[in-house]
């Protein structure tokens, strides 16, 4: 992979050029003491040393609410698909979120390719940045998601006075040539990048005591563990853990009509297995009607089902769920470590 250097003082002009010339640029900004991805109006808002964002950048590829079809009501209804996609630059995406997007790519393209996701994805440029200040609940190194080798167009690493830029695609390279002042990276600078990444590894506070490849097996043995009931007792079924998760992609579908009751749309919106009615059916049945089964299902998704289905991890260790969970039960790391303990 080719690597370049952007001096820090040249970063602002690069971002400004992208904002002015290329496309909508989305990046992490401050929000009430935390960070959130949002449209950048000017470079000054961009925070590249953030820990993590409230919501994952997947929201720009798989929006929380998205129209799928439009229709006219009446005797001869007409229907048409709605697919919205515009060029977008996701700037400052952390490696774990890049890995999560790689999972979504697979989930939305296998079997029945989803045009709504894939059109947005095709038009999106991903400019990553290495995460050097991990949030206290993150456990990326244990899952191999602390750094990414694929899934980005450009990847930045802060090495002090400058950024090393790894070029991941020709699209990325073109943007660089067109809008940034760069120079070749020296061996010393590449070594510096390695040492920054190494130093960052030491800043993670949570570790998984089991390798991700062993998780499916561990879970196979843990179905009847008392842990599920014990821990889920406190669950508020508030869905915070699934809403903030970069690898969750479940949704609900509903119809809405205009006030004149003549036309309408069908939209999807984020939904998830921790919400009470996710598996409820007409007539009052609910296939996951208790907190225990919902809590267990989410953990199995993260550690086993998604892996078996899509060949990618169902959790990238970002720690957002653990930060968001008021009941302090949502961290997959805690559950997996505990089950590992139990299985000894």
């Amino acid at each position: 992979m080719e690597n370049k250097i952007i001096e820090k003082q040249n970063m602002a002009p690069f971002v400004d050029n992208l904002i002015n010339a290329e496309a909508e640029v989305i990046g992490p900004k401050r929000k009430d003491g935390k960070y959130a991805f949002d449209k950048l109006i000017e470079t000054g808002e961009l925070c590249l040393d953030y820990d993590t964002t409230l919501l994952p950048p997947k929201m720009y590829l798989f929006p929380p609410k998205e129209t799928l079809i439009k229709f006219e009501l009446g005797k001869e209804p007409e229907v048409e698909p709605v697919v919205e996609a515009k060029p977008l630059i996701l700037f400052g995406v952390h490696p774990y979120d890049i890995k999560a997007i790689e999972l979504l790519d697979v989930a939305f393209s296998t079997t029945n390719p989803d045009i709504n996701y894939l059109s947005k994805r095709e038009k999106a440029v991903i400019i990553g940045v290495d995460c050097l200040n991990p949030n206290p609940n993150a456990f990326c190194p244990s899952l191999g998601t602390a750094t990414a080798e694929t899934g980005f167009d450009l990847m930045l690493t802060d090495i002090g006075d400058s950024y090393v830029v790894a070029i991941g695609s020709s699209k990325g390279e073109q943007l660089l040539t067109k809008y940034a002042e760069t120079r070749e990276a020296s061996q010393v600078e590449l070594a510096q990048r390695n040492s920054e990444r190494q130093k960052a590894l030491a800043r993670y506070k949570v570790t998984l005591n089991i390798s991700p490849e062993e998780l499916p097996q561990l879970l196979d043995k843990s179905w009847d563990s008392p842990w599920w009931k014990e821990k889920s007792e406190k669950c508020l079924s508030c869905g915070s853990c699934i809403v903030v998760c970069p690898t969750c992609f479940c949704f609900d579908v509903q119809d809405d009509v205009t006030l004149n009751l003549k036309e309408g749309e069908r939209y999807r919106q984020w939904d998830g297995c921790m919400l009470v009615d996710f598996a409820a059916v007409a007539g009052g049945g609910n296939f996951r009607g208790d907190k225990e089964s919902r809590f267990r299902h989410r953990m199995y998704r993260k550690g086993k089902y998604i892996w078996e289905r899509y060949g990618k991890l169902g959790c990238v260790g970002c720690g957002r769920c653990a930060s968001a969970c008021l009941a302090e039960i949502a961290s997959p790391a805690e559950t997996f470590n505990r089950l590992k303990e139990e299985s000894k």
């Binding site: 949704f251 609900d252 939904d271 996710f278 059916v281 296939f287 299902h297 078996e308 289905r309």
Partner: peptide
């Protein structure tokens, strides 16, 4: 078997039984 369904095409996640 019957489960809640939304998309019918393996995307929405509603119909899962285990994996």
């Amino acid at each position: 078997l019957e489960r809640r369904m939304k998309c019918g095409i393996g995307k929405c996640g509603h119909c899962q039984i285990n994996g």
